[in-house]
Design a protein around this nucleic acid. Structure first.
Lengths: 340, 340
DNA sequence: TTGAAAGCGGTACCAA
DNA sequence: TTGGTACCGCTTTCAA
């Protein structure tokens, strides 16, 4: 059922039917009602492709995911982020288009997404400290919101970020308060902005107590499980093993748990582990309660908000860049969820 | 840059340029080369919306994710599945459209996706044992492949599934071999097909040793963390606590680990845990090695294959339904990844 | 081997 | 308040 068929069925012109369905004021209430009813009854939905060709709006948002050639896995927080964003989009009649792109030809992906006219706007995931995608998108004139930040980007742009620095600062302070002095930082690649900021927070907390970060206890790589396993195994085998681990990813934490286990140690008793992106934390010194920094539900909320920012920005093309910094829910000594 | 501009620039008709770019044989090699070069140079990409309006093909695949109103979280395996599917799609010039849908109005979502003409085919996620989506999609004539199966569906349809029954059967056998007799099954909702099959496997392994599943050790609910926590806490506090847990989701396993920890027990020493969907398993009886059923990378491969099946099915509209059963990589006593 | 022109299914301007 | 019609950017038939 298309517009032509519907209008013939009603004995009206396509114009009138289109107007009635899209809420234009110049159509009489009587006809509008008749048209709406018929549309519902005959199960008419306008063809999105035709609509976007005519209007120049696609009503679709692109999410471009860089996939590193080496491990090809998607960051697990992505699912929660997209769930939040998707809820906002569908409230406003937008679709999500996902583009998985090998990181070497990312710029090309944005260019082509724009040239082919398949999206009205873009959410940028996984920003680097200096990220060429930002000037590129600006040049293309394609509205975008960055999930995260690019510290070295001089010009303003819209972003929404978790306060990574503060989260790791607080987690470090917390471990210091418990008496830990040898705290390991198992971080992501530090050209990624979030990882850079997390290290800043870690170092800041230490230096404010007059301590210095020990390079032997700091690792930075792509956040795989094997990386966590190797890092923890090496550090635990050293002369001065860490008493606590601060970890950037739940996947990496799996490897760390395994190394701890293989070393004959017990988490929470012999070694403490705090993980970003929602995993169960284990603390020594009598603290058997879970610790998170950044829960899955807060990632979802981040998705909702980023999507709302982007839609605003699409609606008002002259809008000035907006920014939003969310504090991570660092839950210490509390429960993991509602109504426990 | 659109086709008209490009053709004017070349002094050719739109027809010829279109033919040259789409590999039609009737255009001379000389013009084809000239056209291709100009297209590259001027950064021309055909507008997807116009193209799909003209051809009736959208070159987009829909992935509809049912979101339960209660917890609104996306199953974490989805990210890996979509990564695999996306790789296959982009090799063939297809886009992914994600639709997040509250489970009550799912049927409507498929209808509208079809009526609005936004996809050429659909991957169905999270099938129930009897799933109304399958007859619906058949009726709509929209090509689809089910990720999973619907046991009660009488007519043939295309699916790709992990052998859930066999995976849980093997994991149960393994625990029985280690001497476990009180094994808990913490399962997903059993109207979901995968959960039903996992229980079958669990029960089969027990009954083949002349044992019967103890209802007190079997739970089935939506796979949240809190569900895992509560289930494990209750069972561990009973007169006859389990010595091992077989768990359907890495998220639920987080709650179980927490309950074990709070009970003053240690995983791998006092209690064994084996989790589906890639998490670290902890085994008592001297087995400190990791155990998985269904790794993240196998989920990725499942995505690749399901996508390939769907594309086949779109290319050949008269194709008969195809099916594919993948054995879960049940890794016991082996390493978690390559080159450990 | 090339081009003109009629769609694909809508929207939106202009006229009635 | 309604309808005719030109377009949006591409494909495809038919004619040259």
């Amino acid at each position: 059922m298309n517009l032509k068929q519907l209008s013939e069925h009603l004995g009206l012109s396509q114009t009138t039917v289109s107007r009635a369905l899209n809420g234009y004021p110049e159509v009489s209430e009587k006809t509008r009602l008749r048209v709406q009813q018929a549309a519902r009854q005959l199960n008419y939905s306008p063809n999105t492709r035709a609509k976007s060709l005519a209007t120049g709006r696609t009503h679709a948002i692109g999410h471009v995911l860089p996939i590193s050639a080496s491990h090809e896995m998607v960051n697990p927080v992505f699912g929660d982020f997209i769930a939040g964003a998707g809820a906002t989009y569908s409230d406003h009649g937008y679709e999500i288009v996902i583009s998985l792109v090998k990181d070497q030809d990312e710029a090309e992906a944005y260019r082509s997404l724009h040239a082919r006219g398949s999206v009205d706007g873009i959410i940028v995931h996984g920003p680097r400290m200096r990220d060429p995608r930002i000037p590129l998108l600006r040049e293309l004139g394609l509205p975008f919101v960055v999930h995260g930040r690019a510290s070295d980007e001089p010009d303003p742009y819209s972003w929404l970020d978790i306060n990574n620095q503060r989260a790791f600062e607080r987690a470090t302070e917390f471990l210091l308060d418990l008496g830990h002095r040898r705290i390991a930082l198992v971080n992501g690649l530090e050209f990624m902005d979030f990882a850079y900021r997390r290290r800043l927070g870690f170092e800041k907390a230490l230096s404010e107590r007059g301590l210095r970060a020990d390079p032997a206890l700091m690792r930075s790589e792509e956040m795989t499980e094997i990386f966590g396993y190797r890092s923890a195994r090496e550090m635990l085998a050293s002369d001065q093993p860490p008493t606590a681990f601060l970890v950037s990813s739940m996947i990496t934490a799996i490897g760390i748990r395994r190394a701890i286990h293989e070393a004959g140690l017990e988490m929470g008793r012999d070694v403490s582990v705090i993980t970003h992106d929602d995993d169960l934390g284990y603390l020594k010194n009598g603290h058997s309660v879970p610790i998170f920094t950044a829960t899955r539900s807060s990632v979802r909320v981040a998705g909702e908000r980023a999507a709302a920012m982007l839609l605003d920005c699409i609606r008002d093309p002259g809008c000035v860049p907006k920014t939003q910094l969310m504090e991570a829910e660092l839950i210490i000594g509390a429960s993991t969820g509602p109504a426990l």
